[in-house]
Amino acid sequence: MKKGEEKGKSRYSTTEAPIRRKPKEVALTFDDGPDHLWTPRVLDILAQYRVKATFMCVGQMAKYNPKILERIASEGHVIGNHSWDHPYFTKIALSAVLDQVERTTEQIDKIIGLKPRLVRPPYGATNEDVNRILKAGGHEIILWDVDSWDWKGLTRPQVARNVLGHVGPGSVVLQHCAGTVDDTLKGTVEALPYIIEVLCEQKYAFTTISEMFQLEAYW
């Protein structure tokens, strides 16, 4: 599975729903899971700090790791749709885009009984046609404005700097909870407690995407 996101993709959302503006509110989001290695470690940290986050899940990863998906849901995190196998939506037919999303929705529903409305196109790759067809299906497209670049196998200080150096009130932070090699997300797991502690010291409140944008997360 290809990792990472296209440079320059930094919009929060294509939704027109009103945004509830709270002072110093931030949403942590984690892409590409669930897996059996990194996702549980991320969940352990979030549980330790009592932080709720949003997990943009890949359909085939959910298929192979159903118990981890169940844990994400049972611990109160929001689950979104991140395609079936992580293609560029702008490089495949629109019918294939719909298949990617619908197949993932069906898989998630089969495991946890919930159908996600929130969609994050892999690599943040979207265009007017993709937006139109997903919106027509009742989906909300969710992107980000702070990129950790953690998929590059960065160190703890590098990941922390990429997040803390750019976060602001209302930020959506992009991180990952699954990797292709064993050490890919070591920096993410090591940086996450520090990121949470610093933001707490700065009086940030953590929220989910659905809460921040006042959106229904599921059908």
Rank of each mutant, 00 (worst) to 15 (best):
Q214S: 15
V58S: 05
L46E: 00
A217D: 03
E6I: 15
K67H: 13
Y88M: 12
G138H: 09
A125W: 06
D99M: 12
I45E: 05
R71M: 07
H166N: 15
Y64W: 13
R103F: 10
Q175D: 06
D44Y: 09
V78S: 01
L174R: 11
A178E: 08
L174S: 03
H82A: 03
V198K: 03
R161L: 12
Q48R: 15
V26L: 05
C57E: 07
I108D: 00
I142F: 01
V78T: 10
T155D: 07
E6P: 05
V78M: 04
R50F: 07
R71K: 15
H77R: 09
Y49T: 07
E106K: 15
D44C: 09
L143K: 06
W38G: 00
F30D: 02
W151E: 00
W151A: 02
Q100C: 10
D85P: 01
I133T: 10
D35S: 09
G165E: 11
V181E: 04
D182M: 12
Y49C: 05
R41G: 07
P23W: 12
S95A: 14
S171P: 04
G59T: 02
M1K: 13
Y88Q: 11
E25I: 14
P87W: 01
P116K: 03
L114D: 04
C57D: 06
L118Y: 01
F30I: 04
K110H: 12
Y12G: 06
S210F: 08
A47Q: 15
F213R: 01
P193K: 14
L98Y: 11
L118G: 01
N81C: 05
F30E: 01
T180W: 07
K2I: 15
I195G: 00
A62G: 06
L28G: 01
S148N: 10
E106N: 13
A17F: 15
P18L: 11
I68E: 02
R41P: 05
D183K: 14
P18M: 08
Y123T: 04
A136I: 13
T90A: 09
K115N: 08
R103H: 14
L164N: 05
M61V: 05
V119D: 02
R117F: 05
L143W: 04
E128L: 13
C200D: 09
T207S: 12
E140M: 10
H77T: 06
E211L: 03
V58P: 00
V101T: 02
L164F: 10
V130F: 05
Y123K: 06
I79G: 00
V146E: 00
Y123M: 11
V167Q: 04
F55W: 03
K63G: 04
V172E: 01
W149P: 00
S95W: 06
S148R: 02
Y204M: 08
K110P: 01
I196Q: 01
R132W: 08
Q100A: 10
R120V: 06
P116S: 09
R11K: 12
L43W: 06
T29L: 06
W151R: 06
I45P: 02
I68A: 02
R50Y: 09
